[in-house]
């Protein structure tokens, strides 16, 4: 089952594209400094590489904060589950038209290989580039606390990191196309929305919740003592009750005429013994003191096979 889902938040997308641009820019300027080609001039290349490095640092700091503030960091923790299946998919399954072994959801966006790769990217490549880059920049600074004998090893690690990043980008871009709709993930990274396979069970639960919340039938739930635990919006409207707090914790007797209480108590004691009723015509006592008619349904609620109360719907019916 497919459903359009919002999976990449605003900041996440901004971060992704800003990072992509910065890495590409750092790559161009960096390889000019390395002597691979001559484009904007050496002095400019160094200057802009330094500026971009600072911009990248700021972005990383914000991103680290964001990851922890939103709990998104959990999405990047590698797991062993389905790693084999994912590898098999890429080297065998994909050629046979098999389906992705893992499902993408808004709370589990990455397949196990993605988790592993992005985790490595964040925990290894970026920090190594960051540290070697800043040593590169400041090892010669007067009064620096670092006294390194030679730039060589630092420069070589930094260069190697750059090569790894290029390979990463190539693979990263290619793997976009392994989706059923090649451009889908790309567009998703721009808009935040993607068509995702979703769990029917989960969908069902969500929808039921929605149905109860938005229904025009009043919903109520009582505990064993006959006190209200929960009602929905429609219930409050039918009873002309302004606020939920006016009813929660009150006994059901406040909602009825005194004459009707006896039969209602019998009804509820039946329900608490396990019976259900389909359509009982009733007269309710609204909060403004007026009376109105409705039909109610009632059934027991369970927890660990024990009856803990009852619940049901009321439908307004003045014609009774």
């Amino acid at each position: 089952m497919k459903k359009r889902t919002y999976i990449y938040k605003n900041f996440e997308r901004f971060w992704h594209w800003a990072q992509a641009l910065l890495i590409i820019f750092l790559m161009i300027t960096g390889f000019e400094v390395h002597g691979s080609f001559s484009l904007m001039g050496y002095e400019e290349a160094v200057l802009f590489h330094d500026i971009a490095a600072w911009a990248f640092t700021v972005l990383i700091l914000f991103t680290i904060f964001w990851h922890f503030a939103t709990g998104s960091w959990e999405q990047y923790i590698p797991s062993k589950k389905f790693v084999k299946e994912q590898i098999n998919y890429y080297i065998i399954g994909i050629f046979k038209g098999a389906h992705h072994p893992t499902k993408k959801t808004s709370y589990n966006k990455f397949n196990p290989l993605q988790r592993l790769t992005y985790f490595g990217f964040k925990i290894l490549i970026v920090p190594v580039q960051f540290v070697t880059g800043f040593i590169y920049m400041y090892y010669m600074y007067p009064e620096n606390p670092l006294h390194i004998k030679s730039l060589e090893i630092i420069a070589l690690i930094h260069t190697f990191g750059a090569f790894v990043l290029i390979a990463f980008i190539i693979a990263h871009v290619y793997l976009l196309t392994t989706n059923e709709e090649p451009m889908e993930s790309f567009i998703a990274m721009l808009t935040g929305w993607e068509e995702l396979d979703i769990d029917p069970e989960e969908e069902h639960k969500q929808h039921m919740q929605y149905a109860v919340d938005k229904s025009t039938a009043g919903y109520y739930r009582l505990n064993k003592e006959g006190k209200f635990i929960d009602v929905n919006r429609a219930w409050l409207d039918l009873y002309k009750c302004k606020d939920k707090s006016n009813i929660i914790g009150k006994h059901f007797s406040t909602t009825r005429k005194k004459e009707d209480l006896k039969s209602l108590e019998n009804l509820i004691s039946d329900v608490l013994n396990g019976k259900s009723f389909k359509a009982i015509p009733s007269i309710r006592k609204c909060f403004d003191g007026k009376f109105a008619k409705h039909v109610l349904s009632i059934n027991p609620t369970y927890e660990n096979n024990e009856i803990i109360g009852c619940e049901g719907f009321i439908i307004d019916n003045p014609k009774i």
Binding site: V33, H34, G35, Y42, S150, L151, E152, A155, L156, T159, F160
Partner: peptide, 13 residues
């Protein structure tokens, strides 16, 4: 000594 732009490690490159 290592100087960017002049030096590189051929193996690494």
């Amino acid at each position: 000594f290592y100087m960017p732009g002049r030096d590189s490690n051929a193996i690494l490159d």
